[in-house]
Amino acid sequence: MPTSVFIVQSDLVEHPRKSRWPARLDLLQSGTGLALALFMWGHMFFVASILLGKTTMWSITRMFEGYFFFGGAYPRLVSGVAAGILLLFVLHALLAMRKFPGDYRQYRKMRAHVKAMRHEDSTLWIWQVYTGFALFFLASAHLYQMLAWPQNIGPYASSDRMWSDGLWPFYLVMLLAVEVHGGIGLYRLAMKWNWPKFSRNFLKKLKWALTGFFLLLGLMTLGAYMKIGFEHQARYGERYQPADLPLWLQELAPEGDFPRRNPPAEDAP
Protein backbone atom coordinates (compact mmCIF):
# COMPACT_ATOMS: atom_id res chain seq x y z
CA MET A 1 0.00 0.00 0.00
CA PRO A 2 1.43 3.35 -0.93
CA THR A 3 0.24 4.98 2.28
CA SER A 4 2.18 2.64 4.53
CA VAL A 5 5.33 3.22 2.56
CA PHE A 6 4.84 6.91 3.08
CA ILE A 7 4.44 6.48 6.82
CA VAL A 8 7.54 4.36 7.10
CA GLN A 9 9.56 6.92 5.24
CA SER A 10 8.40 9.93 7.14
CA ASP A 11 8.26 8.52 10.60
CA LEU A 12 10.65 5.71 11.17
CA VAL A 13 13.50 5.88 8.74
CA GLU A 14 14.06 9.55 9.14
CA HIS A 15 15.14 9.44 12.77
CA PRO A 16 17.32 6.44 13.47
CA ARG A 17 17.98 6.38 17.18
CA LYS A 18 21.47 7.09 18.35
CA SER A 19 23.45 3.95 19.18
CA ARG A 20 23.52 3.03 22.85
CA TRP A 21 26.95 1.44 22.48
CA PRO A 22 29.24 4.37 23.25
CA ALA A 23 27.41 4.70 26.56
CA ARG A 24 27.71 1.03 27.33
CA LEU A 25 31.35 0.93 26.35
CA ASP A 26 32.11 3.90 28.56
CA LEU A 27 30.32 2.26 31.45
CA LEU A 28 32.18 -0.96 30.78
CA GLN A 29 35.49 0.86 30.74
CA SER A 30 34.72 2.38 34.08
CA GLY A 31 33.49 -0.94 35.45
CA THR A 32 36.49 -2.98 34.31
CA GLY A 33 38.80 -0.25 35.56
CA LEU A 34 37.16 -0.25 38.95
CA ALA A 35 37.30 -4.05 39.17
CA LEU A 36 40.95 -4.15 38.15
CA ALA A 37 41.91 -1.41 40.58
CA LEU A 38 40.14 -3.08 43.48
CA PHE A 39 41.70 -6.41 42.49
CA MET A 40 45.11 -4.77 42.46
CA TRP A 41 44.68 -3.46 45.97
CA GLY A 42 43.64 -6.91 47.24
CA HIS A 43 46.43 -8.54 45.30
CA MET A 44 48.91 -6.15 46.83
CA PHE A 45 47.79 -7.03 50.34
CA PHE A 46 48.09 -10.77 49.62
CA VAL A 47 51.51 -10.43 48.08
CA ALA A 48 52.60 -8.20 50.94
CA SER A 49 51.79 -11.00 53.35
CA ILE A 50 55.44 -11.97 52.94
CA LEU A 51 56.19 -9.06 55.27
CA LEU A 52 54.36 -10.97 57.97
CA GLY A 53 56.48 -14.04 57.38
CA LYS A 54 56.95 -16.82 54.89
CA THR A 55 54.40 -19.04 56.58
CA THR A 56 51.68 -16.43 56.25
CA MET A 57 52.46 -15.95 52.59
CA TRP A 58 52.57 -19.72 52.08
CA SER A 59 49.20 -20.12 53.80
CA ILE A 60 47.58 -17.46 51.70
CA THR A 61 48.95 -18.96 48.52
CA ARG A 62 47.67 -22.35 49.56
CA MET A 63 44.33 -20.87 50.43
CA PHE A 64 43.92 -19.60 46.88
CA GLU A 65 44.88 -22.97 45.57
CA GLY A 66 42.00 -24.44 47.58
CA TYR A 67 44.31 -26.34 49.84
CA PHE A 68 42.27 -25.62 52.94
CA PHE A 69 38.95 -26.37 51.32
CA PHE A 70 39.32 -29.13 48.80
CA GLY A 71 41.75 -31.46 50.53
CA GLY A 72 44.67 -30.66 48.27
CA ALA A 73 46.33 -27.81 46.36
CA TYR A 74 45.01 -27.02 42.90
CA PRO A 75 47.16 -24.26 41.35
CA ARG A 76 44.86 -24.36 38.30
CA LEU A 77 42.43 -22.36 40.45
CA VAL A 78 44.95 -19.53 40.33
CA SER A 79 45.19 -19.98 36.57
CA GLY A 80 41.46 -19.54 36.45
CA VAL A 81 41.57 -16.28 38.38
CA ALA A 82 44.48 -15.10 36.24
CA ALA A 83 42.47 -15.92 33.14
CA GLY A 84 39.55 -13.91 34.46
CA ILE A 85 41.75 -10.95 35.24
CA LEU A 86 43.41 -11.23 31.84
CA LEU A 87 40.02 -11.08 30.24
CA LEU A 88 39.09 -8.00 32.27
CA PHE A 89 42.45 -6.50 31.49
CA VAL A 90 42.21 -7.01 27.76
CA LEU A 91 38.71 -5.66 27.75
CA HIS A 92 39.76 -2.62 29.74
CA ALA A 93 42.76 -2.05 27.50
CA LEU A 94 40.65 -2.29 24.38
CA LEU A 95 38.10 0.18 25.74
CA ALA A 96 40.71 2.54 27.06
CA MET A 97 42.50 2.53 23.73
CA ARG A 98 39.55 4.41 22.29
CA LYS A 99 40.64 7.35 24.40
CA PHE A 100 44.32 7.13 23.49
CA PRO A 101 45.83 9.53 20.97
CA GLY A 102 45.11 7.99 17.59
CA ASP A 103 48.33 8.96 15.86
CA TYR A 104 51.60 10.70 16.51
CA ARG A 105 50.24 14.09 15.56
CA GLN A 106 47.45 13.80 18.10
CA TYR A 107 49.92 12.59 20.70
CA ARG A 108 52.24 15.54 20.06
CA LYS A 109 49.34 17.96 20.28
CA MET A 110 48.15 16.44 23.51
CA ARG A 111 51.59 16.48 25.05
CA ALA A 112 52.21 20.09 24.08
CA HIS A 113 48.79 20.96 25.50
CA VAL A 114 49.47 19.25 28.81
CA LYS A 115 52.88 20.82 29.06
CA ALA A 116 51.62 24.32 28.35
CA MET A 117 48.60 24.08 30.60
CA ARG A 118 50.47 22.95 33.71
CA HIS A 119 47.14 21.56 34.87
CA GLU A 120 47.39 18.73 37.35
CA ASP A 121 44.48 16.57 36.23
CA SER A 122 45.48 16.86 32.58
CA THR A 123 49.07 15.99 33.43
CA LEU A 124 47.86 13.01 35.41
CA TRP A 125 45.98 11.81 32.38
CA ILE A 126 49.05 11.74 30.21
CA TRP A 127 50.76 9.72 32.92
CA GLN A 128 47.82 7.38 32.83
CA VAL A 129 48.39 6.95 29.12
CA TYR A 130 52.09 6.25 29.63
CA THR A 131 51.52 3.79 32.44
CA GLY A 132 48.60 2.20 30.64
CA PHE A 133 50.78 1.71 27.61
CA ALA A 134 53.49 0.13 29.74
CA LEU A 135 50.96 -2.16 31.35
CA PHE A 136 49.94 -3.52 27.95
CA PHE A 137 53.22 -5.38 27.99
CA LEU A 138 54.08 -5.76 31.64
CA ALA A 139 50.69 -6.91 32.86
CA SER A 140 50.20 -9.19 29.87
CA ALA A 141 53.52 -10.87 30.51
CA HIS A 142 52.84 -11.21 34.21
CA LEU A 143 49.35 -12.53 33.73
CA TYR A 144 50.53 -15.06 31.17
CA GLN A 145 53.14 -16.26 33.60
CA MET A 146 50.56 -16.74 36.32
CA LEU A 147 48.24 -18.40 33.89
CA ALA A 148 50.84 -20.82 32.61
CA TRP A 149 52.79 -21.57 35.75
CA PRO A 150 50.46 -20.90 38.67
CA GLN A 151 52.43 -23.32 40.79
CA ASN A 152 55.39 -20.93 40.85
CA ILE A 153 53.92 -18.81 43.59
CA GLY A 154 55.26 -19.13 47.06
CA PRO A 155 57.76 -17.68 49.50
CA TYR A 156 60.76 -19.25 47.78
CA ALA A 157 59.43 -19.71 44.25
CA SER A 158 58.42 -16.05 43.98
CA SER A 159 61.63 -14.84 45.58
CA ASP A 160 63.74 -16.91 43.23
CA ARG A 161 61.86 -15.38 40.35
CA MET A 162 62.72 -11.94 41.63
CA TRP A 163 66.37 -12.53 42.29
CA SER A 164 67.82 -15.58 40.61
CA ASP A 165 65.65 -15.21 37.48
CA GLY A 166 66.49 -11.49 37.55
CA LEU A 167 62.90 -10.30 37.18
CA TRP A 168 62.94 -7.66 39.91
CA PRO A 169 63.40 -4.71 37.53
CA PHE A 170 60.34 -5.95 35.63
CA TYR A 171 58.33 -6.03 38.83
CA LEU A 172 59.64 -2.68 39.99
CA VAL A 173 58.51 -0.97 36.80
CA MET A 174 55.20 -2.79 36.87
CA LEU A 175 54.63 -1.81 40.48
CA LEU A 176 55.15 1.86 39.69
CA ALA A 177 52.96 1.66 36.60
CA VAL A 178 50.13 -0.18 38.28
CA GLU A 179 49.94 1.99 41.36
CA VAL A 180 50.15 5.23 39.44
CA HIS A 181 47.64 4.06 36.84
CA GLY A 182 45.19 2.60 39.33
CA GLY A 183 45.32 5.53 41.72
CA ILE A 184 44.70 8.10 39.03
CA GLY A 185 42.08 5.87 37.47
CA LEU A 186 40.08 5.56 40.66
CA TYR A 187 40.27 9.30 41.29
CA ARG A 188 39.10 9.97 37.76
CA LEU A 189 36.25 7.51 38.15
CA ALA A 190 35.06 9.44 41.17
CA MET A 191 35.24 12.65 39.15
CA LYS A 192 33.59 11.10 36.15
CA TRP A 193 30.54 9.81 37.96
CA ASN A 194 30.58 12.28 40.84
CA TRP A 195 30.57 9.47 43.37
CA PRO A 196 31.51 9.13 46.20
CA LYS A 197 30.45 12.70 46.84
CA PHE A 198 33.47 13.89 48.77
CA SER A 199 35.13 17.12 47.82
CA ARG A 200 37.50 16.96 44.91
CA ASN A 201 40.27 18.28 47.10
CA PHE A 202 39.76 15.49 49.59
CA LEU A 203 39.58 12.83 46.90
CA LYS A 204 42.75 14.14 45.31
CA LYS A 205 44.55 13.97 48.64
CA LEU A 206 43.13 10.55 49.31
CA LYS A 207 44.34 9.43 45.90
CA TRP A 208 47.89 10.57 46.59
CA ALA A 209 47.80 9.04 50.04
CA LEU A 210 46.63 5.68 48.71
CA THR A 211 49.11 5.69 45.85
CA GLY A 212 51.87 6.52 48.33
CA PHE A 213 50.75 3.83 50.71
CA PHE A 214 50.57 1.12 48.09
CA LEU A 215 53.84 2.15 46.52
CA LEU A 216 55.52 1.99 49.88
CA LEU A 217 53.92 -1.34 50.66
CA GLY A 218 54.88 -2.59 47.22
CA LEU A 219 58.47 -1.50 47.50
CA MET A 220 58.84 -3.07 50.92
CA THR A 221 57.28 -6.26 49.61
CA LEU A 222 59.54 -6.29 46.57
CA GLY A 223 62.49 -5.71 48.86
CA ALA A 224 61.43 -8.61 51.06
CA TYR A 225 61.19 -11.02 48.12
CA MET A 226 64.52 -9.83 46.79
CA LYS A 227 66.15 -10.36 50.18
CA ILE A 228 64.71 -13.88 50.46
CA GLY A 229 65.71 -14.57 46.86
CA PHE A 230 69.23 -13.36 47.52
CA GLU A 231 69.59 -15.56 50.58
CA HIS A 232 67.96 -18.49 48.80
CA GLN A 233 69.91 -18.33 45.55
CA ALA A 234 72.12 -21.27 46.48
CA ARG A 235 69.05 -23.45 46.87
CA TYR A 236 67.29 -22.18 43.77
CA GLY A 237 64.23 -24.20 42.96
CA GLU A 238 63.64 -25.51 46.45
CA ARG A 239 60.10 -24.97 47.72
CA TYR A 240 59.12 -23.59 51.07
CA GLN A 241 57.75 -25.90 53.66
CA PRO A 242 56.34 -24.34 56.78
CA ALA A 243 57.79 -25.77 59.94
CA ASP A 244 54.62 -25.05 61.79
CA LEU A 245 51.12 -23.72 61.27
CA PRO A 246 48.66 -22.20 63.70
CA LEU A 247 46.45 -24.85 65.07
CA TRP A 248 43.25 -23.65 63.41
CA LEU A 249 44.91 -23.79 60.04
CA GLN A 250 46.28 -27.24 60.71
CA GLU A 251 42.75 -28.34 61.33
CA LEU A 252 41.66 -26.96 57.97
CA ALA A 253 44.50 -28.56 56.09
CA PRO A 254 43.92 -31.93 54.38
CA GLU A 255 43.74 -34.67 56.90
CA GLY A 256 47.05 -36.15 57.91
CA ASP A 257 49.24 -33.46 56.47
CA PHE A 258 50.08 -31.65 59.66
CA PRO A 259 49.47 -34.15 62.48
CA ARG A 260 52.26 -36.12 60.84
CA ARG A 261 54.24 -32.92 60.88
CA ASN A 262 55.02 -33.74 57.31
CA PRO A 263 53.57 -30.97 55.25
CA PRO A 264 53.45 -31.34 51.49
CA ALA A 265 56.02 -29.68 49.35
CA GLU A 266 55.17 -26.37 47.81
CA ASP A 267 54.60 -28.38 44.71
CA ALA A 268 56.90 -30.38 42.67
CA PRO A 269 57.83 -28.76 39.39
Binding site: K18, P22, K99, D121, R188
Partner: peptide, 12 residues
Protein backbone atom coordinates in the same frame (compact mmCIF):
# COMPACT_ATOMS: atom_id res chain seq x y z
CA UNK B 1 25.03 10.28 24.07
CA UNK B 2 28.15 9.37 22.12
CA UNK B 3 31.91 9.71 22.00
CA UNK B 4 31.70 13.22 20.61
CA UNK B 5 29.47 13.92 23.56
CA UNK B 6 29.46 12.98 27.17
CA UNK B 7 31.02 9.53 26.70
CA UNK B 8 34.04 10.99 24.99
CA UNK B 9 34.83 13.26 27.91
CA UNK B 10 37.84 12.02 29.84
CA UNK B 11 37.13 14.05 32.98
CA UNK B 12 40.39 15.95 32.92
Amino acid sequence: GDDAGVFGCMSL
